[in-house]
Design a protein around this nucleic acid. Structure first.
Lengths: 189, 189
DNA sequence: TAATAAATCAACACGGTGTTCGATTTTTTT
DNA sequence: AAAAAAATCGAACACCGTGTTGATTTATTA
């Protein structure tokens, strides 16, 4: 066959697109398998051949997004060599801009905020470790508290940025985040 | 009757308790009206006499919580007279500790994180205003970015605190939050 | 005690679920 | 190009929760 995409992949893509369409004006909880298949022009039985329910579909899509996001992020990180906490921020914001379409859905009004949080949680240990090296005098509790606060802050900033249409450049956002993390309220002076 | 509570209020309380019970080991989406009424020892028809569906019940409970939380918070704020940004933090953490049972549910694994966010959003304008007064040189974008970051950070810190059983005192948390907001990474030195 | 409000019970049609079957279409293998 | 394997289809099925109804019983209020 000429087409490199197998039938299964095409089916999954159609379901994925249908879900994204519906997710634009409905919360996940009120999306049914039936309407999903109607939009995707698929038999309902075919859905159950691949997914257990709508939430399973969503989970698998998120898993793909996560993989894609990390795949896009990693070369940036490894290229930067040693990851110094403030430098990473810019890369992350750039990566979000590059994957804007994916991020918009998960952050959007009907998106699953938990997804992004889970994503943050996975890179936690790496970042914490780098804090330990940079600040050997700080105790574990402080490091954890700082990480929690700062990642929560970055996430909130990112969320607002995406929600309001990514008007500013990723650099602007990254700089703001870095400066707040670095100097606190002095950011306002 | 001796009991000052009307029958309706008792019914609503039973449904509220049933929901909290189920929410302890199930996400909201997989809680049905049927099982809710079985646990509450109520007729299913009675449920529909008060609520449209499970989400409506949850919303009404959240509205009560919000009212209760603000009612508890306001005297603290007004007693403090002029609200200086860093001082408020401690009061908020104390208020969370006082309403621990309520917070635990909404923050918990199956809780609705959106509730707390909505709560934060409502006090936004007051806090932003106080920033404007304290930092007349900062432009609007900076103030908004700082508020977004900092409230997100406090929320994350609070979330972790509740999730891990509120071991530390509210003062400890408030101090950490204040110091991070104030001096950034210098918190770790 | 009489009147009113609230909760109960049983029954109903409705719609989505998840599964099954055999038939049909598409892809892969030989 | 023919045969085998895999994926989709279409229809039917029992199942379960939904939301509503009307008549009845129980509690509250006046």
């Amino acid at each position: 066959m000429k087409n490199p995409e197998h039938r299964v992949q095409l089916t999954k893509r159609r379901l994925r697109d249908a879900l994204m369409t519906l997710l634009a004006d409905k919360p996940l909880r009120s999306i049914t398998v039936k309407e999903l298949c109607q939009i995707a022009n698929l038999n309902r039985g075919t859905f159950y051949a691949h997914y257990a329910d709508v939430y399973d579909l969503m989970n698998q899509i998120e898993a793909e997004m996560k993989a894609g996001f990390f795949a896009a992020l990693e070369p940036m990180l490894s290229a930067a060599g040693q990851l110094t906490p403030p430098k990473v921020t810019k890369k992350v914001f750039e990566c979000i801009e590059a994957n804007a379409d994916l991020c918009r859905v998960t952050i959007g009004p009907y998106g699953d905020k938990e997804f992004a949080r889970r994503l943050l949680r996975e890179s936690k240990s790496d970042i914490i470790q780098s804090y330990r090296l940079c600040f050997p005098n700080a105790d574990e509790w402080q490091i954890n508290a700082y990480y929690t606060f700062v990642s929560g802050g970055c996430f909130a900033l990112m969320e607002r940025w995406i929600r309001e249409g990514m008007v500013e450049s990723p650099e602007t956002l990254a700089n703001a985040a870095e400066r707040i993390m670095e100097c606190g309220v002095a950011f306002l002076q």
